[in-house]
Amino acid sequence: MDYTRQEMMAIATGREIKDGEMAIFGVGLSMLAGYFAKRNHAPNIRDLTEGGVYGAFPVGGLPWGIECNRISSNAVSFTNAIDALGFLVASGRCDVGIIGAAQVDKYGNVNTTGLWADPANSRYLPPKVRLNGSGGANEIACGCKRFIIMATHEKRRFVEKVDYISSPGYLTGGNARDRYNFPGGGPSVIITSLGILRPDPVTREFILTEYFPFSSVEEIKENTGWNLKVSPEVRVTAEPTPEELENLRAVDVTGALRKKS
């Protein structure tokens, strides 16, 4: 079957969303994955973006941002970030969020702030590479009952410890997160461009549970910056069905996910 790696990634993410849930999507790939789920198997999700666009479906392809006309034009309600992040997410009502990551570590902590030559002093020195900041991802990571992380699987992104925690995962593992009384439960899954990682229920370390049909356990281990544990029940992810591809491409009409594989 003809599909790209990014399409597999979006479909795998969409499969994580169940019908009827309240779901919040970040910019880009996560939005395509979310609206794909809405069209494919979850028509009754209560979807929103950080900008407060509620109950929309994109028109004309990948939205340019969280308040883009491509989604705001047919939204049920177009409110604001305070309603979306402040009330719906921070109160713990939101079931699931989808965020991206520049760097992610083995406990699902996400860095979108910057990269430092000496990460131990990151608060006091200028970064080597300044990234764009967490935006609403920190609220989603703290407030949603669970959240999904999407990231390209590369060694420089999948690191032992992130340079800076922009959006908290399980912090140092185990029950470290409980100390902070976040309303949300933490990351449930990391969907990468090669496979799927889920947290161990006790240590909260992310382990490999599925690999995509075009990848392998070896390839994934090679592209991970820590010694990735592999689940004994590791299996290959089901290929996208023709219906799934058709529904994804109905959202991604401009082919943003088909440009490169």
């Binding site: 340019w64 910057g114 080597k128 764009n132 900041g133």
Partner: peptide, 22 residues
Amino acid sequence: FGFFGFENEYGLAAGFRKGCQE
């Protein structure tokens, strides 16, 4: 700020990024 950038394929804000890094 919370997020400083151009979103999607327009990526990071070059002027801000350079200023921070310097």
